[in-house]
Design a protein around this nucleic acid. Structure first.
Length: 372
RNA sequence: GUGGGCGUAGCUCAAUGGCAGAGCACCUGAUUGUGGUUCAGGCGGUUGAGGGUUCGAGCCCCUUCGUCCACC
């Protein structure tokens, strides 16, 4: 039963489903907040439970360096260690090696890089990534991949070849999905033929889910949407599709409308730490002086613990660099995205996804329809 | 009362007699498989006041106001 995926409803290309995991069922589409260092920054697991968060992502690279995946295993695994008993996913470490590692050498077997913490030399290979992720013990683990510059065709081509080669190694090192499900990752930059070739290769390997990587890394939104249009039809209907690193509210609508089931993104918590909050009328920067005496809540449509506080108070907390600001705004932003995705799931089941999208997007993007 | 120091952006302070600046604060923007201390941009001045010397004064001279210190 574990890791089986049921599609319970479709509406156009959008689907509503259930992904079964050893730590509970995940209703999809789902948005996963990111807990890099075994914590969704500033938000305790209790709150994530109250917000009905279906999935949390943790980072292999960061946890391998600190506190160490061996320690996490000794402490009973990531669920126990971080006090989150719901479904967990770990990324492979590939993205961080490329985005954080200052000095690194890529070869066909893996990546040599320097720790961003102490500069010590480290090496990550597909087999090593699997070993680390097994030590961490998340429900879903990701193949070790290479994320190229999306608009550099030669680099995207080379990254495809490595990513595909490495997927085989990952499957060999993690041969069954009894305890942890391995997801493969499609690369290919913004080039349709490379994406399709990657999707063909990756889906030849039987995996519990397929991810689309290498997006939201510098390309434009239209490029990202077109790439999804080209890629998703190459993925099997009966497996969950995971768009990695994407989570702006409009992108969630665009992704779900194209058939994506799983998202993760740092944006709700990162924006919160910079004082920005999601509302149905678009993103607001609570640091702005215009909120100095604003007695309203961030977004009247939400009802979470942050809802009882005024924008004026939250602005004060941000300006004063009070820790409570990080907690309350992170809570709000995660709630916003969770309710947003939950609403889309209900809309899909009711056959009203398009209605939701055409209502949500113009308001969120603040489009003036009267001039069109 | 006498002697001395200091008065420059909201704050702390720079600036040989030669285009008045910096840091912080304030204001605005950015952040998509994490980047709480980051980055970018912007607002901001009758240099305490008045007079003088000079081609030219934040700087030199005089007066005055404020402030701090020391000594009667």
């Amino acid at each position: 039963m574990s890791f089986e995926f049921e599609v319970v409803a479709t509406d156009g290309n959008a689907r509503a489903g259930i992904l079964h995991t050893p730590h509970g069922d995940i209703p999809t589409p789902v948005f996963a907040p990111v807990g890099t260092a075994a914590t969704v920054k500033a938000v305790p697991p209790r709150d994530l439970e109250e917000l009905n968060i279906g999935l949390v992502l943790a980072n292999t690279y960061h946890l391998h360096l600190r506190p160490g995946d061996e320690l996490v295993r000794e402490m009973g695994g990531l669920h126990s260690f971080m006090g989150w008993n719901g479904p967990l996913l770990t990324d492979s470490g590939g993205f961080q090696v490329f985005s954080l590692g200052e000095i690194n050498r890529i070869d066909d077997e893996g990546v040599t890089f320097r720790s961003h913490l102490d500069g010590s030399a480290k090496r990550l290979t597909p087999a090593r990534s699997m070993e680390i992720q097994q030590n961490l013990g998340a429900d879903i683990i990701m193949a070790f991949d290479q994320c190229p510059n999306p608009s550099d065709r030669d680099e995207a081509q080379a990254a495809n070849e490595r990513t595909h080669r490495w997927l085989r190694r990952c499957r060999e090192a993690h041969p069954d999905d009894n305890q942890q499900a391995l997801f493969g990752i499609v690369q290919g930059g913004v080039f349709p033929d490379l994406r399709q070739a990657s999707a063909r290769f990756v889906t030849e390997t039987d995996l519990k889910g397929y991810a689309i990587g290498g997006l939201a890394v510098g390309e434009t939104k239209p490029e990202m949407y077109l790439t999804l249009d080209e890629t998703i039809p190459c993925l099997p209907q009966e497996r969950p599709r995971y768009l990695m690193g994407v989570g702006e509210p409009d992108d969630l609508v665009e992704g779900i409308g194209r058939g994506v089931d799983i998202f993760d993104c740092v944006i709700p918590t990162r924006l919160a730490r910079h004082g920005a909050a999601f509302t149905h009328d678009g993103r607001i920067n609570l640091r702005n002086a215009k909120f100095k005496a604003d007695e309203t809540a961030i977004d009247a449509a939400l009802n979470n613990y942050a809802s009882r506080f005024s924008r004026a108070y939250l602005r004060h907390l941000i300006v004063a660099k009070e820790l409570l600001a990080y907690y309350l705004i992170s809570l709000h932003n995660i709630d916003f995205l969770a309710r947003h995705v939950e609403s889309m799931r209900r809309a899909i089941i009711a056959g009203k996804f398009r209605e939701y999208a055409v209502k949500f997007l113009p308001r969120y993007l603040r489009l003036d329809l009267t001039t069109e």
